[in-house]
C-alpha cells in the first residue's frame, strides 16, 4: 500500500486502525444530524428571542404606561417632561399614510410591469429588464432615503408650494418605488405559472392579448398577485431609513400628506440616536412600538401565506 511515511504496517495493525477509524466514523456520523438540527433550531430560537424580548420589555413599559392609554390616547408626546403621553395612534397613522401612498405607486406600476414581462415582452427584453429590476430591489434603503430628501422632495415642492421639507408624500412615493420590483417580480411569477394551454384557449376563441390577460390570466393568478401586494405592503410598513431621512419627526394623527410625520420605525430610530437613558420609560417605549410593528407585519405575512395556500390553483 502506498503510504506517505516509512512506518511499517502489519496487516493486523491496519485492521485495528481501520476498525478504530470506523468506530470514530460511526460516532461522527451520528453526531452530524444533531449538530445540523442545532443550527436549524437556532432560527426558531431567533423568533422566540424576538417574541420574548418584545413581550418582556413591553410588559415593563405597560407597568409604567397603561395599555389603555397606549391604545386609545390620540397624542404621542414621549419627550414632554411634564405632560408625557403615549398614544400609539399618531405613529400608526403616520405608518399607514406612508404605506397607502406607497401602495398607490407600487400596485399599478408593479402590476403593469408584471403583465408586460409575463404576457407581452419578448424573451430577450425579459432577460434585460428582470436583472435591472433586481438591481432596483437590491439598492440599500438609505440610498432611497437620500434620493427622497434631495431629489423627490425638491421636485414635489415646485409642484406643491405648501409642502414642508419633511413630509409624508415624498418618502411614501419613494417607498412605493422601492417595493415596486417586489410586486412586479412576485406577480410575474404568479402569472407565468398560469399554463400556456389556458392562454392558447383564450386566443383560439379570438380574444386579444389584453382580453386574455384581464379576463383569464389575472383571475387565474389572483391569489399570487394578492400575496405579492400584501408582502410588499408589509415591507413598506417596516421600512425605516427612507421615512427617517425624509419623513420628519412630528407624530400627528391627521391625514394631511404635506406636513411632517413620524412612523413607528422612525420613532425607534429617533430614540436610538437620541440620548434617552437605559431603563427609562422612553427606552421601553421603543419595544412597545416595535411590538406593534411586529404584530402588523406578522399578521400580513401570515395572511399572505394563507392566501397562497388556500387559493392555490393547481394545474
Amino acid at each position: 500500500m502506498p503510504r506517505g511515511n516509512d512506518k511499517e504496517y502489519s496487516v493486523q495493525q491496519m485492521i485495528i486502525e481501520k476498525r478504530l477509524k470506523k468506530k470514530n466514523h460511526f460516532n461522527f456520523e451520528k453526531l452530524i444530524p444533531g449538530l445540523l438540527l442545532l443550527t436549524a433550531v437556532l432560527s426558531v430560537l431567533t423568533t422566540i428571542g424576538i417574541v420574548f424580548t418584545l413581550i418582556f420589555e413591553t410588559f415593563i413599559f405597560f407597568d409604567r404606561v397603561s395599555i389603555i392609554e397606549f391604545l386609545t390616547n390620540k397624542k404621542w408626546y414621549p419627550f414632554s417632561a411634564t405632560n408625557a403621553s403615549f398614544g400609539i395612534m399618531p405613529l400608526v397613522v403616520g405608518t399607514l399614510k406612508i404605506t397607502g401612498i406607497a401602495a398607490i405607486v407600487a400596485v399599478p406600476i408593479g402590476l403593469a410591469t408584471a403583465i408586460y414581462l409575463s404576457e407581452y415582452a419578448s424573451e430577450k427584453a425579459r432577460r434585460v429588464i428582470k436583472p435591472i429590476l433586481e438591481v432596483l430591489a437590491g439598492i440599500p434603503t438609505i440610498v432611497y432615503g437620500f434620493f427622497a430628501l434631495t431629489f423627490v422632495t425638491p421636485i414635489l415642492k415646485q409642484m406643491i408650494p405648501s409642502l414642508e421639507t419633511f413630509n409624508a408624500l415624498s418618502p411614501g412615493i419613494v417607498v412605493g418605488i422601492m417595493i415596486t420590483p417586489m410586486v412586479a417580480s412576485l406577480s410575474e411569477d404568479a402569472m407565468s405559472s398560469v399554463p400556456r394551454s389556458i392562454r392558447e384557449g383564450a386566443f383560439a376563441l379570438g380574444a386579444t392579448k389584453l382580453e386574455t390577460t384581464i379576463k383569464v390570466i389575472l383571475p387565474a393568478a389572483v391569489s399570487g398577485i394578492t400575496a405579492s401586494v400584501v408582502l410588499a405592503l408589509s415591507r413598506a410598513i417596516g421600512e425605516t431609513m427612507i421615512v427617517s431621512v425624509a419623513g420628519g419627526s412630528t407624530p400627528n394623527a391627521s391625514f394631511d400628506v404635506t406636513s411632517s410625520i413620524q412612523t413607528m420605525t422612525a420613532y425607534i430610530v429617533q430614540v436610538s440616536t437620541g440620548d434617552a437613558g437605559y431603563q427609562t420609560t422612553i427606552y421601553y417605549s421603543i419595544y412597545a412600538v416595535g411590538m406593534t410593528l411586529f404584530l402588523f407585519t406578522l399578521f400580513m405575512n401570515l395572511f399572505a401565506q394563507f392566501i397562497t395556500r388556500k387559493f392555490k390553483e393547481e394545474y
Binding site: 408582502l231 415591507r235 417596516g238 425605516t240 425607534i268 419595544y287 411586529f294 407585519t297 406578522l298
Partner: peptide
C-alpha cells in the same frame, strides 16, 4: 418578513 429594525431590538 420581520422588519430589520425589530432585529435591532
Amino acid at each position: 418578513g420581520v422588519p430589520s429594525i425589530v432585529f435591532g431590538l
